[in-house]
């Protein structure tokens, strides 16, 4: 398996001469893998995402995505954030169509093959449990439904890279677990072609969803631990209550605590 996203020795500050936001990041995520980045807030997780998608450029180090050094925004990544960022003047379906109006080859095909794309968007909505919600405006949906729609928007153009920045942070525990399963299934459906990087501060979320977990120290963010999660897929939500699962969560906790103590 080849690495899809690779950061080597990446350091970044927002203001010249300011304190570093991230310091010497080394990260390698393979194609088709589901990676999670955990760390305390303010440690530079969102910065890492921006670096990996070419929305920010590192002062030091190299960022390589899909075999190419990143010099511009990557032009193909799907992104979802803690806030659903749906456009309130568009219906949910129209919101989903937004990436298709921008990304080629869909952009030039959209006008002629409208019906086909609408059907695809509706199928995607159905697969996340939003059947029939396409005609509604985002403000007519609950927070969890908006977040589902936001995930669909991130995936409609079949990106090779999906970036999720604490997408479940604002949801209640039940909705969050439902959405874990939604994202797990979406990833499984794109078997091996979709690389996901999930930023979170929830260790259980990371362990349940990810194949590989990176732990970051507090600012300036460094990678202090990396470990693989070997549970077989598809994973059932029940595994989060098994001792093996708890062991991994504990292990990660301990490593973060240790790094904080020595820092």
């Amino acid at each position: 398996m080849r690495p899809f996203v690779e950061l080597t020795g990446v350091s970044h500050t927002y203001a010249t001469g300011g304190t570093l936001a991230v310091d010497g990041l080394d990260i390698k995520v393979n194609e088709g893998e589901f990676a999670a980045v955990v760390g305390p807030s303010g440690c530079g997780k969102s910065t890492l995402m921006k670096l990996a998608t070419g929305l920010q450029f590192p002062q030091k180090g190299a960022v390589v995505v899909d075999g190419k050094e990143v010099r511009d925004p990557v032009k193909m990544a799907g992104m979802a954030f803690q806030a659903p960022t749906l456009l309130p003047w568009r219906t949910t379906l129209e919101n989903l169509m937004l990436p298709l109006e921008i990304v080629e080859p869909h952009r030039s095909r959209l006008r002629k093959h409208k019906a086909e794309y609408v059907a695809k968007a509706e199928a995607l909505l159905e697969s996340v449990g939003l059947k029939g919600a396409g005609a509604k405006f985002p403000w007519q949906l609950s927070g969890g439904m908006q977040q589902r729609a936001s995930l669909c928007r991130a995936l409609i153009h079949e990106p090779k890279l999906l970036m999720l920045d604490e997408p479940f942070g604002a949801l209640d525990a039940f909705t969050r677990e439902e959405l874990w399963c939604v994202i797990r299934d979406l990833h499984a459906r794109m078997s091996g072609t979709l690389t996901v990087i999930l930023v979170t501060h929830d260790l259980r979320e990371a362990v349940f969803l990810a194949d590989r977990i990176f732990c970051m120290s507090s600012r300036p963010g460094k990678i202090i631990a990396e470990r693989e999660v070997e549970f077989a897929r598809p994973r059932d939500i029940e595994i989060t209550y098994t001792p093996q699962f708890s062991d991994i969560v504990h292990d990660l906790r301990a490593r973060i605590a240790e790094a904080r103590a020595t820092a």
């Binding site: 921006k50 929305l55 954030f81 456009l87 990436p99």
Partner: peptide, 14 residues
């Protein structure tokens, strides 16, 4: 414009 919305657009190559 919310910076996150702008990020979503830029990462799509807008």
């Amino acid at each position: 414009i919310e910076p996150e919305t702008e990020d979503v657009m830029k990462a799509l190559g807008a």
